[in-house]
Design a protein around this nucleic acid. Structure first.
Lengths: 251, 251
DNA sequence: TTAAGATTCGAACGAACGTTCGCTAAGATC
DNA sequence: GATCTTAGCGAACGTTCGTTCGAATCTTAA
């Protein structure tokens, strides 16, 4: 799978209306999609860039930092993308697409609602810990991209959110439970996305064990009805109803 | 409470060895600590700065952005702090100290372990939602500060982590439960710190209700022993033991 | 009234920023 | 071997960055 669209290679800058510097001949329809030299080199550049963005943040990283890390001249970098902003876009898009693709594959393995949520968590954590830099750039530079590119990434994010919400509502229906889907999704996202701030491979469990533990913590919280939790003292009972006014999700 | 130490006002740049431009006369011991004109003005400057850092990030915000927001000249800002980095330090320190002070006050109200954890969550969320900008700057610019100032903030953060860990271990002892304190703390922190990425006051519940709901979710997850959770299918049982090697916490 | 500090500002500093230009090799195609 | 495209580079562009300087204005207390 090429990292940029075949037809518009080198020219995703179209997103903000800029003219492409070069126009490649369109591939014939049905032509085999190979990982060209260009794609392989770009992939390496993204690796190095993600590393630097992870260390210094998007704004804090200079193009000169990136060129040093990639072992390539400053001007040479611009052969592979049209701007620093597009570089971030390519990193985020690639990361999101990979994690969603893998998830869809794995979800085919089970129809049990609870099991499917565990698959979601494990998929997320496995990719997270194996690609720390990319995932930190994805989550930390969450609202860095603006306009067209930002909208595109936000759309993919909504898709990912939606998948998780659907999984949780399947579970709720299957078990006849009562909980706010939105709050559950965002609570779960918080738990699993926060990991990049603390995970230390020399101290903490690996992805599989971590997914097990976090899955336990979360699922026990969701699965157990309130009445079944002994000693759950509720104070100020009258303020415990959520004040949701409409269901528009914005995550 | 003055925002900077009385004796070293204007000179916290000492942290990285720079010479202060001005030295104020030391206050006599026991002299009443008043919020001077300086402190009040600095406080306003921090408000505006937090707003801009929140919008554009620390690196993305320029001193010119800050001067515009504060309605003050670029050079005039430097009367209140010695560098952009110190400005971030002052914001983060003030935020952390305020939230911890309030927590300590509130914790005096109860000795019940579960209640005390709910107090922790509610205190955090209340401050979070009432001071979104400051809390985003605190969490998002987590590892931006380096050297002396960074170490100082990290120390306060460890203190806050420790308080929460102690609360959880009190609960575990009181109820005779079994769970990883570290994972529970970090899971909880993830849930409540992630809020800044999604909370919308027009859609979501207020701090009190949110604290109730998140407290429920989290406490049910922690309180319920595994055996009491019906239908909690564990797969791959042999990989579920955490592989912790030593207990050094790094959050 | 006046002297001393506190506060504020316009103007400028050198450094670093993202990006572009013109040019060379290196591959590929005939 | 001629021709065209791809890949890569040194040098520079104009802009913006954080910070500083000296002077001007305001505040306060004697």
């Amino acid at each position: 799978m090429p990292l940029v669209d075949t037809e518009t290679r080198l020219t995703p800058a179209n997103l903000d209306g800029r003219k492409p510097r070069t126009v490649l001949p369109a591939r014939k329809a049905g032509e085999e999609i190979t990982d060209s030299r260009f794609d392989r080199r770009l992939s390496k550049v993204l690796d190095h860039a993600a590393q630097i963005f992870c260390e210094k943040g998007y704004e804090g990283a200079s193009m000169r930092d990136l060129s040093r890390a990639a072992g390539m001249s400053l001007a040479g970098l611009y052969h592979y993308f049209s701007s620093k902003e597009e570089l971030l876009y390519l990193i985020q898009k690639h990361t999101f697409q990979t994690i969603i693709d893998r998830l869809q594959q794995r979800l085919k393995a089970s129809a049990d609602p609870e099991e499917r949520i565990r698959i979601f968590i494990e998929n997320h954590l496995e990719y997270f810990l194996a690609n720390k830099e990319f995932m930190k750039v994805l989550t930390h530079e969450d609202d860095t991209l603006k306009n067209g590119r930002g909208a595109e990434i936000r759309a993919i994010k909504r898709e990912y959110y939606r998948i998780c919400l659907d999984l949780l509502e399947d579970l709720r229906r299957a078990k006849g439970l009562q909980f706010s889907g939105r709050l559950a999704v965002l609570g779960l996202f918080g738990m699993i996305n926060w990991i990049y701030t603390w995970h230390n491979p020399r101290v903490d469990a690996d992805a599989k064990a971590l997914a097990q533990e976090m899955g336990d913590l979360f699922l026990r919280g969701v699965l157990n009805p309130v009445s079944q939790s002994p000693g759950l003292a509720r104070r100020d009972e009258n303020s415990s109803k959520p004040k949701r006014k409409n269901g528009k999700a914005n995550a």
